[in-house]
Design a protein around this nucleic acid. Structure first.
Lengths: 234, 234
DNA sequence: TTGCGTTTTTTGTGATCACTCATTACAAGC
DNA sequence: GCTTGTAATGAGTGATCACAAAAAACGCAA
């Protein structure tokens, strides 16, 4: 029938924070397309500046235009894609101004999430974060994709602990917007013989000693360190 | 034909083709529906917690289901409406936790926008902001809707000056999410014999004396003052 | 009256078709 | 040769239909 199959999937259960959402949800085609496009974006498979048409995407997915339409509109609403005056969508090119703006917003929001998250981190989360950092620093050659995923989980474990779901969603949106550039950072990081995530360690230590403000500083530093690397390669 | 008519609207007057004036732009139905729903939301016409069906909205608009669908999905993507497990949408009820979260995010983002905007405000913008504030403080009885619109314009004039478009869009989204509560604030404010927008004056003075950090403080104070009022009435 | 299983209706999702606008190609005219 | 009007193609928008799942209504038995 189609390349996309209807599956039953778990929707972020967030067990300890006890949020609303139901345990099971059937995925729709437009959600599948949305996820696929998201993956394509963060893995850099889509060239910035390129426009995409509904029909071509639909035919390549083997489905009709409607789910593609909704997925694209959703990404536009999330500021990941932009709507051209022609009403066609494109992946915007990242200017240095836009990158700097996103970075400043990120330091503001993720700083808040980190400081507030630090107040609610459980010991289990902390060991998880420590584990993730050690994984990232392991000498064994790992794929950039994995490292990126670990880094992401490190940050969002902390952010989710803040119990500010709206804030976390906004940060996710920002990460998605910056998506095409994130793996660029990873490449540079990996070029160093042994990448050391100094700010991660600072954050972990600050959490242990119960200094939320220092956790904020560490996370902000982490973002700015990465931004510097990316900005140099832009 | 339909309750929503396609309108021709003036967009810009710069005509490079000699004299012929108005550039024409045709709005789509889903945008119309989106705007209508937005207006209904910020004017409090939709009860929090109420669910809305695509078909009923479509029939009341006199159009087919598709534009309504897209408009609703867009509002969901902007976190204004929520998607229930049934896949129907509803206007979420505002818990005190959610309101506090939104307020904290607002102080963070609008503080940034205010501080950065203060560095780029033109004299013309400043007089405009002063004028808006005096309008809001005028003794003559004005509608809450007007006051709300003036307040909104005051803030966004400052924010837009920051030249951070992504940031401004995110703030707009937050205002929309808080929309149903904003006119609640206005009602309380109007209950005072003569509302005085202290923080507005502080902001204006700080802009004049070139102290962006103080502008930030004033705007943050404005948000927190309003939040206190709303929180008390929640 | 209450509880439960069945039927009917409602509702969201996706496919297909028709329509309009934008863009391009092409050709006629200056 | 360059410009301009016109046809052709492509692409987004919206209407209608079909389908599946959820909700509501109903009926029957305890």
């Amino acid at each position: 029938m189609s390349a996309l199959s209807r599956k039953i999937q778990h929707v972020s259960d967030e067990s300890e924070s006890g949020f609303d959402v139901p345990k099971l949800s059937r995925s729709t085609l437009n959600e599948e397309v949305y996820e696929q496009l998201k993956q394509a974006l963060i893995s850099g498979k889509i060239a910035p500046g390129s426009t995409m048409t509904i029909r071509s995407l639909a035919s390549s997915f083997g489905i009709s235009v409607m789910p593609v339409r909704e997925a694209l509109r959703r990404l536009v609403a999330e500021h990941v894609l932009t709507l051209l005056p022609n009403r066609s969508v494109s992946l915007p090119v990242f200017t240095r101004e836009r990158f700097n703006e996103i970075t400043r917003i990120r330091t503001s929001l993720e700083g808040l999430a980190a400081e507030e998250g630090a107040r609610h981190v459980t010991p289990k989360m902390l060991t998880h974060m420590t584990h993730l950092t050690s994984l990232m620093e392991a000498k064994t050659a790992v794929s950039h994709t994995d490292t990126l995923a670990w880094n992401r989980e490190f940050h969002f474990t902390l952010y989710t602990a803040s119990k500010m779901p709206t804030l976390v969603k906004m940060i996710e949106s920002l990460w998605l917007q910056a998506g095409p550039l994130l793996h660029l950072q990873q490449r540079v990081f990996a070029a160093q013989k042994q990448p050391v995530y100094v700010q991660h360690h600072r954050a972990i230590q600050a959490i242990k000693s119960g200094k939320p403000a220092q956790v904020r500083d560490a996370i902000v530093g982490d973002i700015e360190d990465a931004a510097e690397i990316i900005s140099a390669a832009l």
